[in-house]
């Protein structure tokens, strides 16, 4: 598959602060590529540069063969953007919003009207098209937000954390929409800090942290980086000392790593069952009450934890 997007050493600085530190990756035509990273990792800044909203401090990217720095207007014709926050006119109806944004993408006349109707069907709001957006639920607004990005049938769709702050049902609908769009041939760049979404959707994943792309590949390729490991998550009480527990657990045979996130201690080991008894003993000896525990198979969360020593939600 040819690459529709090729990013080369993209850098974005704000004074002394470097938000994105030389990000290089490509996206192949027809794939769903996820940029996975915690809040503040540089996902939105990267997507803002790629969508020509921000000018890179250095580096460049080509999208559909057009440079984002030299030919941004041509790039804009290729891409569709679904921003992280809702970007709609709430006093206009869904249909009026779609018509307006369609006009901004150069659509007009009958083709605009028919495309608006298609998109309304696609996002499941045809029967509520004449209601003002401000009367919609958060999930419905999200769907209109996505619909705007689809109007001109972009070859590459940027979706920046489209499921933040919505109910599980709407989240499910959005993830299904992304998969449907991809099945119809649309390439998607999806940013998220939800490991589950990246796992469910992505053909390939780039893990970004502190402005750097620290891992890139298919999910299999990434999980192999952490080997055949399991993650034991210990949930402890709010008044307990997770650092003390993590320190104690690191001395247990078979424990590769133990890190703290809020009131959780994440333990990476080759076999969680083998260390369970020793871990509980360490907790009891220090008077720390373990409220519950999970055992997780190797996943992107473990990859991130392995690479950064922190959980994705940090």
């Amino acid at each position: 598959m040819p690459a529709i997007l090729e990013s080369q050493n993209l850098v974005k600085k704000y004074g002394d602060f470097t938000a994105v530190k030389g990000v290089t990756f490509d996206i192949k035509e027809g794939e769903i590529f996820s940029l996975l990273g915690p809040n503040g990792a540089g996902k939105t800044t990267t997507i803002s540069m790629l969508s020509t909203l921000y000018t890179p401090t250095s580096g460049d990217a080509t999208i559909g063969g057009h440079s984002i720095t030299k030919d941004p207007m041509a790039v804009k014709q290729v891409i569709g953007v679904v921003p992280q926050d809702l970007a709609l006119y709430e006093d206009l109806t869904a249909k009026e919003n779609l018509v307006f944004w369609g006009q901004m993408y150069g659509l007009g006349g009958k083709s605009l009207n028919s495309r608006v109707d298609e998109v309304l069907d696609q996002i499941g709001l045809a029967d509520k098209a004449k209601n003002r957006v401000k009367t919609y639920s958060g999930g419905m607004k999200r769907r209109v937000n996505i619909g705007v990005g689809l109007l001109h049938k972009p070859r590459l769709l940027f979706m920046d954390e489209p499921t933040v702050g919505i109910d599980p049902q709407s989240r499910r609908a959005i993830l299904d929409t992304v998969k449907d769009l991809n099945e119809q041939g649309m390439t998607v760049l999806y940013t998220t800090h939800y490991m589950e979404e990246a796992q469910e959707l992505s053909d390939r994943v780039g893990i970004i942290d502190h402005g750097e792309l620290i891992a890139l590949g298919t999910q299999d390729e990434l999980t192999k980086q952490v080997g055949q490991t399991e993650t034991l998550i210990l949930h402890i009480g709010e008044n307990e000392d997770p650092e003390a527990l993590a320190k104690a657990i690191r001395s247990v045979d078979g424990v590769q790593k133990a890190d703290v996130t809020d009131n959780e201690v994440s333990v990476i080991t080759s076999d969680a069952k083998d260390i369970l008894a020793a871990v509980v003993t360490q907790a009891n000896e220090r008077g720390i009450r373990i409220r519950s525990m999970d055992i997780r198979e190797p996943n992107l969360e473990a990859v991130f934890l392995n690479l950064t020593g922190r959980a994705l939600r940090d």
């Binding site: 804009k76 953007v81 921003p83 970007a87 901004m104």
Partner: peptide, 14 residues
């Protein structure tokens, strides 16, 4: 602030 201005600027509108 509401994001519609940036959205306008990522459309083919200068």
């Amino acid at each position: 602030a509401e994001g519609t201005l940036p959205r306008l600027l990522v459309s083919p509108t200068n």
